[in-house]
Amino acid sequence: MRAFDYARATEAAEAVGSDARLLAGGTNLLDLMKLEVETPARVLDINRTGLDRIEADGEGLRIGALVSNSACAADARVRADWPLLAQAILAGASPQLRNKATMAGNLCQRTRCQYFMRTDTRCNKREPGSGCDALEGVNRNHAILGASEACIATYPGDMAVALAALDAWVEIDSPSGRRSVALREFHRLPNGIAHRDNVLEPGEIITAITLPAPVRGRQIYRKVRERSSYAFALVSVALVLRMDAGRIAAAQLAFGGLAHKPWTDSRVAEALLGQKPSPALFDKAADLLLSGAQGQGENDFKIPLARRTLAAVLHDATKE
């Protein structure tokens, strides 16, 4: 780990406009600092800034940036009204990591691309302009949607996939004031500038994640991986679906493990609406989802895997 200056903030305002790296749970930042993938000169510890409350927000919920993943998943309101979020959080990492990891930190979690995580390779995300060694390397876990020649990394998290399906928003304090970004717009695709994972600007701090009013229907987070726990997703599907008189009345979906961001595609839900569930319908939805999918060889299997996982989840959500 490179040497750095450490300071503690007592209120969020100290972080606004700061050029320091913000240290919350540390489970990702310190990991990457040990690898010297991250080499900040200044680190600002924001754990004591009080952003760790979960509050009602009209019919919705406002979850403070520093609420731990565990606390969020254990919250009675989350479990009752947004169970998809609890499921997704609990599918990720380990209990120890979830106790330390925060909501905002988890949104900012960086890719697990092994070329990104070692400093002796070419990686446009770590070192803009250097190239991408993953393209012809070990890329079993890499993206099949929205990737570019610059970067085929995936966003590795689970929580944000659920938040995308739930239409959550990210509340950000910046030197010019407070702004909100739809979670679906928060993470970026790599085209052009692979080193930027999301739309956060220097000097900004995430203060909260807000959930809109609960949506009725079955909520399912399905994560596929060869190890049954403590492993990143090969593919994941977040689904909220409501049936009415044997037809699909409402559906919200997001996908993990496929792209540089939690993947959403409005055409998939549109194809489902008003339809009777059937394997053929699920296939049609998958066709839309995967129409632009591109494998790199080792990760070609993600295309049929995404198709079949979507079918499993839709079947599960629509069965009597």
Binding site: G26, T27, S70, Q96
Partner: peptide, 29 residues
């Protein structure tokens, strides 16, 4: 492992279990 991947360093902080390898001592005032 020193990277939060094995759990051998698990300790309790204010009663909650965490990986002590992925936490700085100075954070625990």
């Amino acid at each position: 492992c020193d990277h939060g991947q094995c759990g051998a360093c698990t300790v309790l902080v204010n009663g909650q279990r965490i990986n002590s390898c992925l936490s700085l001592a100075v954070m625990h005032d």
